[in-house]
Simulated scan of single mutants.
Amino acid sequence: MKMPPAHGPVFIVLNAGSGRQGEQARQDSIVKAMDSASRCYQLFLFDRRRPITAVAKEAVQAAVSVNGVVVAAGGDGTINAVAQEAIGSGCAFGVLPQGTFNYFGRSHAIPEDTDAALELLLSGTPTAVQVGCVNNKIFLVNASLGLYPDLLEDREAFKNRFGRSRLMAVFSAIISLLGEHRQLLLNVHWSNAAGPAVGAGEGAENAGGLHQLRTPTLFVGNNRLQLEQIGVAEAGELGHGRLVALAPRAIGTAALFSLALQGAIGQLGEADSVRSLAFERLSVAPAGRFGRRRFRIATDGELAWMRPPFEFKVFEKPLWLIKKTEVANAVATAGGPS
Protein backbone atom coordinates (compact mmCIF):
# COMPACT_ATOMS: atom_id res chain seq x y z
CA MET A 1 0.00 0.00 0.00
CA LYS A 2 1.31 3.42 -0.96
CA MET A 3 1.97 5.98 1.76
CA PRO A 4 0.18 9.29 1.02
CA PRO A 5 2.07 12.62 1.08
CA ALA A 6 2.08 14.52 4.38
CA HIS A 7 3.52 17.89 3.44
CA GLY A 8 0.73 19.35 1.33
CA PRO A 9 -1.95 21.88 2.32
CA VAL A 10 -3.76 21.14 5.58
CA PHE A 11 -7.56 21.08 5.87
CA ILE A 12 -8.72 21.20 9.50
CA VAL A 13 -12.23 20.22 10.64
CA LEU A 14 -13.25 21.66 14.01
CA ASN A 15 -16.20 22.86 16.03
CA ALA A 16 -17.20 26.44 15.29
CA GLY A 17 -17.09 27.01 19.04
CA SER A 18 -20.57 28.41 19.65
CA GLY A 19 -18.90 31.35 21.34
CA ARG A 20 -17.34 29.25 24.12
CA GLN A 21 -14.03 30.68 25.30
CA GLY A 22 -12.10 27.40 25.47
CA GLU A 23 -12.95 26.34 21.92
CA GLN A 24 -12.23 29.80 20.56
CA ALA A 25 -8.84 29.80 22.30
CA ARG A 26 -7.95 26.44 20.71
CA GLN A 27 -9.01 27.74 17.31
CA ASP A 28 -6.80 30.80 17.79
CA SER A 29 -3.86 28.53 18.74
CA ILE A 30 -4.33 26.50 15.57
CA VAL A 31 -4.42 29.60 13.39
CA LYS A 32 -1.32 31.06 15.07
CA ALA A 33 0.68 27.85 14.74
CA MET A 34 -0.23 27.32 11.09
CA ASP A 35 0.58 30.93 10.24
CA SER A 36 3.95 30.64 12.02
CA ALA A 37 4.78 27.45 10.09
CA SER A 38 3.99 29.17 6.78
CA ARG A 39 1.95 26.11 5.84
CA CYS A 40 -1.02 26.50 3.53
CA TYR A 41 -4.20 25.59 5.44
CA GLN A 42 -7.96 26.04 5.59
CA LEU A 43 -10.39 25.70 8.48
CA PHE A 44 -13.69 23.86 8.02
CA LEU A 45 -16.07 24.74 10.85
CA PHE A 46 -19.10 22.68 11.81
CA ASP A 47 -21.97 23.58 14.12
CA ARG A 48 -25.65 22.79 14.58
CA ARG A 49 -26.49 24.39 11.24
CA ARG A 50 -23.66 22.68 9.34
CA PRO A 51 -23.35 19.06 10.51
CA ILE A 52 -19.94 17.52 10.83
CA THR A 53 -20.64 14.80 8.25
CA ALA A 54 -21.16 17.34 5.46
CA VAL A 55 -18.23 19.50 6.55
CA ALA A 56 -15.89 16.48 6.82
CA LYS A 57 -16.83 15.33 3.32
CA GLU A 58 -16.09 18.79 1.96
CA ALA A 59 -12.71 18.93 3.73
CA VAL A 60 -11.65 15.50 2.46
CA GLN A 61 -12.63 16.36 -1.10
CA ALA A 62 -10.53 19.53 -0.88
CA ALA A 63 -7.56 17.59 0.52
CA VAL A 64 -7.75 14.89 -2.15
CA SER A 65 -7.79 17.47 -4.95
CA VAL A 66 -4.36 18.87 -3.96
CA ASN A 67 -2.69 15.86 -2.25
CA GLY A 68 -3.27 17.53 1.08
CA VAL A 69 -3.80 16.42 4.66
CA VAL A 70 -7.19 16.31 6.39
CA VAL A 71 -7.18 16.93 10.14
CA ALA A 72 -9.79 16.33 12.86
CA ALA A 73 -9.68 18.68 15.86
CA GLY A 74 -11.90 17.38 18.65
CA GLY A 75 -12.83 14.34 20.72
CA ASP A 76 -13.09 10.74 19.60
CA GLY A 77 -16.54 11.35 18.07
CA THR A 78 -15.27 14.21 15.90
CA ILE A 79 -12.19 12.21 14.93
CA ASN A 80 -14.41 9.28 13.95
CA ALA A 81 -16.64 11.44 11.73
CA VAL A 82 -13.69 12.87 9.80
CA ALA A 83 -11.94 9.50 9.59
CA GLN A 84 -15.13 7.98 8.11
CA GLU A 85 -14.68 10.29 5.12
CA ALA A 86 -10.86 10.16 5.01
CA ILE A 87 -10.36 6.39 5.07
CA GLY A 88 -9.78 5.04 1.60
CA SER A 89 -9.47 8.54 0.12
CA GLY A 90 -5.73 8.34 -0.36
CA CYS A 91 -4.92 11.35 1.80
CA ALA A 92 -3.05 11.49 5.11
CA PHE A 93 -5.02 12.02 8.31
CA GLY A 94 -4.05 14.15 11.30
CA VAL A 95 -5.49 14.52 14.79
CA LEU A 96 -5.62 17.39 17.28
CA PRO A 97 -7.15 15.73 20.38
CA GLN A 98 -9.60 17.93 22.30
CA GLY A 99 -11.99 15.46 23.93
CA THR A 100 -12.64 14.10 27.42
CA PHE A 101 -10.67 10.83 27.25
CA ASN A 102 -8.84 11.11 23.89
CA TYR A 103 -8.20 7.36 23.71
CA PHE A 104 -7.37 7.39 20.01
CA GLY A 105 -4.82 10.20 20.22
CA ARG A 106 -3.23 8.94 23.42
CA SER A 107 -2.85 5.40 22.08
CA HIS A 108 -0.86 6.79 19.14
CA ALA A 109 1.31 9.13 21.24
CA ILE A 110 -0.40 12.28 19.97
CA PRO A 111 -0.17 15.02 22.65
CA GLU A 112 -3.34 16.41 24.19
CA ASP A 113 -1.72 19.86 24.22
CA THR A 114 -2.81 21.61 21.02
CA ASP A 115 0.54 23.28 20.30
CA ALA A 116 2.46 20.02 20.77
CA ALA A 117 -0.04 18.12 18.62
CA LEU A 118 0.34 20.71 15.86
CA GLU A 119 4.13 20.37 15.99
CA LEU A 120 3.77 16.61 15.51
CA LEU A 121 1.24 17.11 12.71
CA LEU A 122 3.71 19.26 10.76
CA SER A 123 6.68 16.93 11.23
CA GLY A 124 5.27 13.39 11.55
CA THR A 125 4.96 10.49 9.14
CA PRO A 126 1.77 8.80 7.85
CA THR A 127 1.38 5.33 9.31
CA ALA A 128 -1.24 2.70 8.44
CA VAL A 129 -3.40 2.08 11.55
CA GLN A 130 -6.15 -0.48 12.06
CA VAL A 131 -9.80 0.58 11.98
CA GLY A 132 -12.79 -1.49 13.07
CA CYS A 133 -16.22 -1.41 11.48
CA VAL A 134 -19.76 -2.55 12.21
CA ASN A 135 -22.06 -2.77 9.16
CA ASN A 136 -19.65 -0.46 7.28
CA LYS A 137 -19.67 2.20 10.03
CA ILE A 138 -16.09 2.54 11.20
CA PHE A 139 -14.84 2.89 14.76
CA LEU A 140 -11.37 3.78 15.96
CA VAL A 141 -11.84 3.10 19.69
CA ASN A 142 -14.93 0.94 20.31
CA ALA A 143 -18.44 -0.01 19.23
CA SER A 144 -21.25 -1.35 21.38
CA LEU A 145 -24.95 -2.09 21.78
CA GLY A 146 -27.20 -2.45 24.81
CA LEU A 147 -26.33 -0.80 28.12
CA TYR A 148 -23.15 0.96 26.99
CA PRO A 149 -24.90 3.21 24.43
CA ASP A 150 -27.41 4.12 27.17
CA LEU A 151 -24.52 5.19 29.40
CA LEU A 152 -23.12 7.34 26.60
CA GLU A 153 -26.47 9.04 26.04
CA ASP A 154 -26.73 9.86 29.73
CA ARG A 155 -23.14 11.12 29.75
CA GLU A 156 -23.92 13.49 26.87
CA ALA A 157 -26.90 14.87 28.79
CA PHE A 158 -24.73 15.42 31.88
CA LYS A 159 -22.04 17.08 29.76
CA ASN A 160 -24.52 19.53 28.23
CA ARG A 161 -25.82 20.44 31.67
CA PHE A 162 -22.70 20.40 33.87
CA GLY A 163 -19.76 20.65 31.47
CA ARG A 164 -17.20 18.18 30.15
CA SER A 165 -14.77 16.41 32.48
CA ARG A 166 -13.64 12.86 33.24
CA LEU A 167 -15.06 13.14 36.76
CA MET A 168 -18.47 14.12 35.40
CA ALA A 169 -18.34 11.19 32.97
CA VAL A 170 -17.77 8.79 35.89
CA PHE A 171 -20.57 10.39 37.93
CA SER A 172 -23.06 10.13 35.05
CA ALA A 173 -22.18 6.44 34.62
CA ILE A 174 -22.93 5.77 38.29
CA ILE A 175 -26.33 7.46 37.98
CA SER A 176 -27.09 5.48 34.81
CA LEU A 177 -26.25 2.14 36.43
CA LEU A 178 -28.89 2.78 39.09
CA GLY A 179 -31.66 2.54 36.50
CA GLU A 180 -33.34 -0.52 35.02
CA HIS A 181 -31.51 -2.34 32.24
CA ARG A 182 -32.86 -4.70 29.61
CA GLN A 183 -31.05 -8.00 29.04
CA LEU A 184 -30.26 -8.84 25.41
CA LEU A 185 -30.54 -12.36 24.01
CA LEU A 186 -28.05 -12.56 21.16
CA ASN A 187 -27.11 -15.22 18.62
CA VAL A 188 -23.36 -14.82 18.18
CA HIS A 189 -20.98 -16.34 15.66
CA TRP A 190 -17.27 -15.57 15.47
CA SER A 191 -14.42 -16.81 13.33
CA ASN A 192 -10.64 -16.93 13.65
CA ALA A 193 -10.70 -16.44 17.41
CA ALA A 194 -7.17 -15.79 18.66
CA GLY A 195 -7.44 -18.04 21.71
CA PRO A 196 -9.56 -19.08 24.66
CA ALA A 197 -12.48 -16.89 25.61
CA VAL A 198 -11.57 -15.69 29.09
CA GLY A 199 -14.42 -16.27 31.54
CA ALA A 200 -16.53 -17.85 28.79
CA GLY A 201 -18.09 -20.23 31.27
CA GLU A 202 -19.80 -23.60 30.97
CA GLY A 203 -20.72 -24.74 27.47
CA ALA A 204 -18.76 -22.01 25.67
CA GLU A 205 -16.51 -22.92 22.76
CA ASN A 206 -13.39 -21.12 21.61
CA ALA A 207 -13.31 -22.17 17.97
CA GLY A 208 -16.28 -20.19 16.81
CA GLY A 209 -19.64 -21.59 15.76
CA LEU A 210 -23.07 -20.34 16.75
CA HIS A 211 -23.70 -19.53 20.40
CA GLN A 212 -26.51 -17.82 22.30
CA LEU A 213 -25.59 -15.14 24.78
CA ARG A 214 -27.68 -13.25 27.35
CA THR A 215 -26.05 -9.98 28.36
CA PRO A 216 -26.91 -6.34 29.18
CA THR A 217 -24.32 -5.08 26.69
CA LEU A 218 -21.87 -6.15 23.99
CA PHE A 219 -18.68 -4.10 23.73
CA VAL A 220 -16.15 -4.42 20.88
CA GLY A 221 -12.78 -2.72 21.34
CA ASN A 222 -10.17 -1.50 18.87
CA ASN A 223 -8.04 0.52 21.30
CA ARG A 224 -5.25 -1.19 23.19
CA LEU A 225 -4.87 1.60 25.76
CA GLN A 226 -8.52 1.46 26.78
CA LEU A 227 -8.54 -2.34 27.07
CA GLU A 228 -5.29 -2.41 29.02
CA GLN A 229 -6.61 0.18 31.46
CA ILE A 230 -9.57 -2.03 32.37
CA GLY A 231 -7.44 -5.18 32.49
CA VAL A 232 -8.47 -7.16 29.40
CA ALA A 233 -5.94 -9.89 28.63
CA GLU A 234 -6.63 -9.88 24.87
CA ALA A 235 -5.61 -6.22 24.45
CA GLY A 236 -2.35 -7.35 22.85
CA GLU A 237 -4.26 -9.06 20.02
CA LEU A 238 -5.29 -5.69 18.59
CA GLY A 239 -3.35 -4.41 15.60
CA HIS A 240 -3.04 -7.85 13.98
CA GLY A 241 -6.31 -7.92 12.08
CA ARG A 242 -8.33 -8.70 15.22
CA LEU A 243 -10.78 -6.91 17.48
CA VAL A 244 -11.76 -7.79 21.05
CA ALA A 245 -15.31 -8.42 22.30
CA LEU A 246 -16.52 -8.16 25.91
CA ALA A 247 -19.91 -9.22 27.25
CA PRO A 248 -20.94 -9.53 30.93
CA ARG A 249 -23.44 -12.18 31.94
CA ALA A 250 -27.02 -11.23 32.69
CA ILE A 251 -26.48 -9.68 36.11
CA GLY A 252 -28.20 -7.20 38.41
CA THR A 253 -27.36 -3.65 39.42
CA ALA A 254 -25.08 -4.58 42.33
CA ALA A 255 -23.03 -6.89 40.13
CA LEU A 256 -22.78 -4.20 37.43
CA PHE A 257 -21.35 -1.81 40.02
CA SER A 258 -18.85 -4.48 41.00
CA LEU A 259 -17.77 -4.89 37.37
CA ALA A 260 -17.45 -1.11 36.98
CA LEU A 261 -15.17 -1.04 40.02
CA GLN A 262 -13.06 -3.91 38.69
CA GLY A 263 -12.71 -2.03 35.40
CA ALA A 264 -11.67 1.14 37.22
CA ILE A 265 -8.82 -0.69 38.96
CA GLY A 266 -7.77 -2.61 35.85
CA GLN A 267 -9.13 -6.04 36.80
CA LEU A 268 -12.19 -6.45 34.58
CA GLY A 269 -10.54 -9.25 32.64
CA GLU A 270 -10.32 -11.31 35.82
CA ALA A 271 -14.07 -11.24 36.46
CA ASP A 272 -15.74 -14.63 36.04
CA SER A 273 -18.95 -12.92 34.89
CA VAL A 274 -17.33 -11.33 31.81
CA ARG A 275 -16.78 -13.17 28.54
CA SER A 276 -13.98 -11.85 26.32
CA LEU A 277 -12.30 -13.01 23.14
CA ALA A 278 -10.24 -11.74 20.24
CA PHE A 279 -11.68 -12.34 16.77
CA GLU A 280 -11.38 -11.43 13.12
CA ARG A 281 -15.10 -11.43 12.35
CA LEU A 282 -18.11 -11.40 14.68
CA SER A 283 -21.75 -11.70 13.60
CA VAL A 284 -24.45 -10.74 16.11
CA ALA A 285 -28.22 -11.15 15.69
CA PRO A 286 -30.81 -10.52 18.43
CA ALA A 287 -32.93 -13.60 19.12
CA GLY A 288 -36.69 -13.86 19.48
CA ARG A 289 -39.15 -11.05 18.81
CA PHE A 290 -36.41 -8.39 18.72
CA GLY A 291 -34.66 -10.07 15.81
CA ARG A 292 -35.61 -7.49 13.15
CA ARG A 293 -36.07 -4.30 15.13
CA ARG A 294 -33.55 -1.47 14.96
CA PHE A 295 -30.94 -1.18 17.71
CA ARG A 296 -28.96 1.78 18.89
CA ILE A 297 -25.26 1.27 18.21
CA ALA A 298 -22.49 3.44 19.65
CA THR A 299 -19.29 3.99 17.66
CA ASP A 300 -16.61 6.08 19.39
CA GLY A 301 -19.24 7.69 21.58
CA GLU A 302 -21.61 8.63 18.73
CA LEU A 303 -25.05 6.98 18.53
CA ALA A 304 -26.79 5.63 15.43
CA TRP A 305 -29.66 3.23 14.67
CA MET A 306 -28.94 0.02 12.77
CA ARG A 307 -30.84 -3.10 11.83
CA PRO A 308 -29.37 -6.53 12.61
CA PRO A 309 -27.46 -8.61 11.93
CA PHE A 310 -24.41 -6.66 13.13
CA GLU A 311 -21.13 -7.61 11.49
CA PHE A 312 -17.98 -6.56 13.38
CA LYS A 313 -14.61 -6.81 11.64
CA VAL A 314 -11.46 -4.90 10.77
CA PHE A 315 -12.07 -2.45 7.94
CA GLU A 316 -10.40 -3.56 4.72
CA LYS A 317 -8.44 -0.30 4.31
CA PRO A 318 -6.16 1.31 6.90
CA LEU A 319 -6.24 4.90 8.08
CA TRP A 320 -3.02 6.80 7.24
CA LEU A 321 -2.48 8.57 10.56
CA ILE A 322 0.31 11.12 10.95
CA LYS A 323 2.39 10.03 13.98
CA LYS A 324 5.84 10.65 15.40
CA THR A 325 8.50 9.63 12.93
CA GLU A 326 10.15 7.18 15.34
CA VAL A 327 6.74 5.60 16.11
CA ALA A 328 6.01 5.23 12.41
CA ASN A 329 9.41 3.65 11.77
CA ALA A 330 8.93 1.16 14.59
CA VAL A 331 5.58 0.10 13.13
CA ALA A 332 7.05 -0.26 9.64
CA THR A 333 9.89 -2.38 11.03
CA ALA A 334 7.40 -4.61 12.86
CA GLY A 335 5.66 -5.19 9.55
CA GLY A 336 2.06 -4.16 10.15
CA PRO A 337 -0.43 -1.45 11.12
CA SER A 338 -0.85 -0.47 14.76
Rank of each mutant, 00 (worst) to 15 (best):
T299G: 00
E302S: 08
E205Q: 12
F310T: 04
L177R: 03
V64L: 04
A117Q: 02
A200C: 12
H211V: 14
G124E: 07
G88Q: 03
L246R: 02
V188C: 03
W320N: 05
G239N: 02
G17R: 04
S283Y: 07
A109G: 03
A117K: 02
S273V: 12
L120C: 01
F158Y: 15
K324C: 04
N187S: 13
V31F: 05
F44N: 00
W190V: 09
N136A: 14
E205T: 14
V129I: 15
V71A: 04
S18V: 06
H240M: 10
Q42Y: 06
T100Q: 08
T325A: 10
Q130W: 00
R249G: 10
L227R: 03
E228K: 11
R50N: 12
R20C: 07
V31H: 06
P308S: 01
A16I: 04
A204M: 14
T333A: 15
A332I: 13
N160Q: 14
A254G: 09
R249A: 14
R296V: 15
A304L: 15
S144E: 04
M306R: 05
N142P: 02
S258L: 13
E302W: 11
I297A: 03
A247G: 00
Q98K: 03
L178I: 11
K137Q: 14
A117E: 00
G269C: 02
R155A: 09
V327F: 12
C40E: 15
N15R: 07
D28I: 10
R289A: 13
P309S: 05
P4C: 10
Q262C: 11
D115M: 13
G239Y: 05
S165C: 07
G105Y: 04
D35C: 15
V55C: 07
H7L: 10
L167I: 14
L303P: 06
S29L: 15
H7K: 11
G75R: 01
S36F: 12
E119P: 01
Q42R: 14
L45W: 05
H7T: 12
D28C: 06
G99R: 03
A328L: 06
L122T: 06
P4K: 04
L261R: 15
V198P: 03
Q229E: 15
A86I: 14
L210V: 14
L167Q: 10
F101G: 02
P337L: 10
G199K: 04
L152S: 00
V284Y: 06
A59S: 04
F44P: 00
S18F: 08
R224F: 02
G239I: 11
A128S: 07
K2L: 14
F315K: 03
